[in-house]
Design a protein around this nucleic acid. Structure first.
Lengths: 133, 133
DNA sequence: ATCGTCACTATCCATAAGGTGCCTATATAT
DNA sequence: ATATATAGGCACCTTATGGATAGTGACGAT
């Protein structure tokens, strides 16, 4: 019996030494999510990405793009012009992933109200002693 | 078409103040992924979860479960017996999410080899000077 | 001549992740 | 009597990460 939802090829993200575990670690980043979603529509330049992702610092943007490039999800193209021009686009693998991540993003947007309520209830349950008579 | 993949209700995960952005931040955690996936099949006890998720410390497990409980994805049930017995299960909202996260997990397991190769190529490209004749 | 653009790089600091050990309470097993 | 299992809480510590700030080089605009 497969003890889990283990994939048929012996990969198991629950095992820390499994390559799929490290893939999951890489994906478990807010900025990876957003960057992949942002590039879903087509190639973008560094500055365009920075403007799209409110709050991201240049450092995090570069770092995230380097990771995505290293893992073969994003292709980086440099135009040797002045001022420098660099464009990023999803590889086929990246496109493939983007579909799933967009679903997560849509889920987050759809269920944000419920979760906000749940959080409010949770903090009310803890803070009520302070307000109680 | 709308300028982005923005959801129809004005929620936009790209905006840092949007509730959906904080939801995405919460989801962007390796342990949240795995915990939700682990609970997908049904309720589990703390110890069962700990054994299933290789490498998680009791501290991180508790912390993760508290967050999931706070956000209404997990329900915690305490049985007042000795030795203590506590069970965790997904709420309906959690079940809903689990489907998506499982897809991500499956994706990670399916594409782990490709990504491993991409990483190997990347480090070869950087380390080749050391090995080159 | 100085400012801004562009795509970074480097540095610092605050926070978070993660590890370790010790504590609770009691029923069961040895 | 001692040890184990259970599900934590609590305190302390080290390391990794996130985020903020500033700098770089070459140019174009003002």
């Amino acid at each position: 019996m497969d003890s889990d939802d283990t994939s048929p090829l012996g990969y198991d993200a629950f095992r820390r030494t499994c390559p799929s575990h490290t893939v999951l670690e890489m994906l478990a980043s807010k900025w990876v999510y957003l960057t992949v979603c942002a590039l879903r529509r087509g190639r973008l330049r560094n500055g365009e990405l920075a403007r799209k992702m409110e709050g991201i610092t240049p450092k995090m943007l570069t770092q995230t793009l380097r990771v995505l490039e290293r893992d073969g999800l994003v292709r980086r193209e440099v135009f040797p012009v002045i001022p420098p021009r660099v464009e990023y686009e999803l590889t086929e693998l990246g496109q493939n992933l983007a579909g799933l991540l967009s679903q997560i993003r849509s889920w987050a947007e759809e269920h944000a109200p419920e979760i906000k309520d749940a959080r409010a209830r949770a903090s009310a349950d803890h803070g009520e002693m302070a307000v109680a008579s």
